[in-house]
Design a binder for these strands. Structure first.
Lengths: 110, 110
DNA sequence: TGTATATGATACCTTTTGGTTACGCAAACA
DNA sequence: TGTTTGCGTAACCAAAAGGTATCATATACA
């Protein structure tokens, strides 16, 4: 089973859980109350988030407080960050130019 | 079928395809040659990437040149960007303080 | 015109995902 | 001590994901 941050944040429910936990720590039932789906379903999402390090759990009696480990998102930010120039609007002219060049220059068969 | 950028980049093969296409446009066979898996498998990944707008295709005779639409990644960058402060090292002290506060202040049952 | 090439489409398979219900158990309360 | 609460886990399910082999088709080359 692949367990990486990219896969973890692919699910919209899990992204929402992270959003919730970014604001404050919550126990599992509190999280489940914020969603329509069942508690065991949330429990599974939490497990996945824990396995890839996006949240950590602090046991407090019978409650388990979940805390978002937001530093883990740096990995994703770094990957997208490589391409940041492409939406800051600075590269558009160059980009279009290169696109055309590349096709013209492609090696012809034979 | 959910088709969003987060889900698209969840697969490592698809991220690699984006990496390849960021450097230069390529046709489908050229992309497939860079991987161990079969051409139809790549074709499916390309379809997914196209459906969510991460790549566009330019037909050139019998070849189809794929181009990465890297601006689409802005969405992901924005989402992770909300939490940027958590890995720039500026918030750690405050963060730890708040974490403890939150638990102490939680409403007691009854 | 015949053949090689680039690619789409289909059928099929296995594993993973995301959900459910039902049950069990330890901690906390009355 | 009995009962509620918080949560894990198991069994089960349908659908989606990721792959394959195979076939069809249009374009390009000889």
């Amino acid at each position: 089973m692949r367990r990486d941050v990219f896969q973890a944040i692919a699910d919209p429910t899990r992204r929402q859980i992270i959003n919730l936990l970014a604001a404050r720590q919550m126990n599992l039932n509190a999280i489940a109350d914020s969603f329509e789906i069942s508690r065991p379903a949330i429990s599974k999402h939490i497990k996945i988030l824990t396995q890839c390090g996006l949240i950590t759990i602090k046991q407090q009696g019978r409650e388990r407080y979940c805390r978002a480990e937001l530093k883990k998102l740096e990995q994703v930010a770094k990957w997208t960050g490589q391409y940041r120039a492409f939406w800051t609007g600075k590269l558009n002219a160059l980009e279009d130019f290169l696109d055309n060049e590349q096709i013209e220059q492609k090696p012809k068969l034979k």
